[in-house]
C-alpha cells in the first residue's frame, strides 16, 4: 500500500492512500467534530462541521475532511481561527434548528457558544442523513429517504406510509444524533440535570454549580465560563 505524507497542523503525518483527512486526523489524535459521519457508513459531507483548511495560509480553501482524500504534500489546518469561527456559526445554525438535541448542544458548548441569536425552529431533524444511509447501507432496506428540497426537505418513508420494507430494526434511531441523546428540557421529577430550568434561552447558556450526569461528559452546564473555550472559537458577541 502506498503511503502518503502530508502535514496536519504542522505535524508531518503518513497515511495509507485513500484515507480521508478526517480518518488521518483522528488517527493522529486530532479531534474533528462531525455530525453526519459514521465510520461504518459512506461519507456524505453535509453537516459541514468537519471542514478543514487546506493549502498555504492566505490561499487556503475549506473542504469537508470526511470526504476529502489525503494528497501528497497537503498542508491541513484543522483548528485555525477561520475554521473555528465557521464551525461555531454552523453549530449556531444547527442549535437554532434543533435546540433540543443534546449532541448538538454539547458540540456548541464546546465551541464556546453561549447564546443563540437565531430564532429557534424546534425541528426534530438536522437532515444529516445518517439514518437514510444506515437503512440503505447497513440494513439493506432503503425504507426511508429524502423528499422535497431546501427548507421542505425531510426524511420519510415512501408516500408517508408505513413501509413494507422496514423491519423495525431501530437502526435509524440508534444512529440519530438528535434523538439518541435527546434533552427533553427541564423536568424536576424525571431528569437529573434540570440546569436549563434557570436558563434563557434553554440550556445552551453556561451555568456554574450544577452537576451534570449526562454521558458523555457534556459539561454544558457545569463548567465555568471561559474555562474550556478555545480563544479562537469564541463567537463575536458585540450584540451584548
Amino acid at each position: 500500500m502506498k503511503l502518503i505524507s502530508l502535514n496536519i497542523n504542522g505535524l508531518p503525518v503518513e497515511v495509507e492512500e485513500g484515507t480521508t483527512l478526517l480518518e488521518a486526523a483522528r488517527a493522529y489524535g486530532v479531534n474533528i467534530p462531525t455530525l453526519c459521519h459514521d465510520d461504518g457508513l459512506s461519507s456524505y459531507g453535509a453537516c459541514r462541521l468537519c471542514v478543514v483548511e487546506i493549502g498555504p495560509p492566505g490561499k487556503s480553501k475549506m473542504v469537508s475532511s470526511c470526504t476529502y482524500r489525503c494528497e501528497d504534500g497537503l498542508e491541513v489546518r484543522t483548528h485555525s481561527a477561520k475554521i473555528m469561527k465557521t464551525r461555531a456559526m454552523m453549530l449556531e445554525l444547527l442549535v437554532s434548528s434543533s435546540p433540543q438535541s443534546k449532541t448538538i448542544q454539547d458540540l456548541a458548548s464546546a465551541h464556546g457558544m453561549t447564546k443563540q441569536r437565531f430564532r429557534p425552529e424546534h425541528e426534530d431533524c438536522i437532515l444529516c442523513g445518517l439514518c437514510v444511509r444506515m437503512c440503505a447501507e447497513q440494513m439493506m432496506s432503503s425504507a426511508i429517504g429524502f423528499v422535497g428540497r431546501g427548507p421542505n426537505r425531510r426524511i420519510t418513508t415512501a408516500f408517508d406510509e408505513v413501509s413494507e420494507v422496514c423491519r423495525r430494526c431501530g437502526g435509524c434511531m440508534y444512529i440519530c444524533p438528535v434523538c439518541t441523546s435527546r434533552c427533553h428540557g427541564p423536568d424536576e421529577e424525571a431528569t437529573l440535570c434540570n440546569a436549563c430550568l434557570n436558563f434563557s434561552p434553554s440550556c445552551v447558556a453556561v451555568y456554574d454549580d450544577v452537576q451534570c450526569w449526562m454521558p458523555p461528559e457534556c459539561g454544558t452546564c457545569v463548567r465555568p465560563e471561559g474555562d474550556y473555550l478555545p480563544a479562537t472559537g469564541r463567537l463575536a458577541t458585540e450584540e451584548s
Binding site: A46, R48, M90, S97, G150
Partner: peptide
Amino acid sequence: SCGQCTPCRIGNVK
C-alpha cells in the same frame, strides 16, 4: 437550495 448541507439550507432561511 437543495437542502443538503447545513449552511445553505438553514443559512438562506435565516
